[in-house]
Amino acid sequence: MNVLEVRELCKKYPKFTLSDVSFSVREGSIMGFIGRNGAGKTTTLKSILGIVHPDAGEIRYFGREFAGHEREVKQQIGFAGGAVDYYKRKPIRKLLDVTKTFYDNWDDDACRRYMDLFSLDAEKTPGELSEGMRVKLNLTLALSHGARLLLLDEPTSGLDPVSREELLDTFRFLRDQGIAILFSTHITSDLEKCADDITYIAKGKLIASEPMAAFLSRCKETGCGNTLDEIMVHFEKESLYEKAAE
């Protein structure tokens, strides 16, 4: 079953266009969402959450259209867009106390577990935490309400190698529990460790959306590279001299 289906998503800005992006995320799978900086990963994630207003496209969660079921859908998804960037001067305890009143399935034990796992102190304010620790706080919020789908924008950026490894372990554990994860990153080595599927966009256009193994073997056969890093460089490296000549 698909927990998320995106069909022909479009968003036009004066200097950037996201055009006809389509992909789907299966229940209990990890999908890596890759592309270089400015490719449209964050715009896509924000559009499928309504944070950005898409110009066209269909977004369905758990078989239901997002537009008419925003409240119910958001009960079942978690979003972490990098570090917590709000209420930086309020104690984390207060932030958690207010946030949990909105969720039907908020799990205090899970919240405490993730707070311990990430060594977060509830008496501190987000402003007192490093960037990496604020990423962990965002993940704690996303993981504490029994979400069936996690949408994570660059969740491993700013984390030290040990925390990254712990986080990837957490993702694998959550996948085994049937939770789907869509996470964007340009640290492709993270995806090679845990992703089942891959969606790749460049300059706002979809390049591929398929199982990771199939994508890697196709690229290997066509000489595009053996790793995600090599493949991205193959598709996107532009010669400085060519650019200057344009």
Binding site: L49, G50, I51, E70, R71, E72, K74, Q75, F79, D85, Y86, Y87, K88, R89, K90, T99, F102, Y103
Partner: peptide, 15 residues
């Protein structure tokens, strides 16, 4: 200043 709009939009509520 506290970026409340983004926080609220991410809660299980309509925009």
């Amino acid at each position: 200043e506290a970026n409340d709009t983004l926080y609220t939009v991410l809660l299980p509520v309509k925009k």
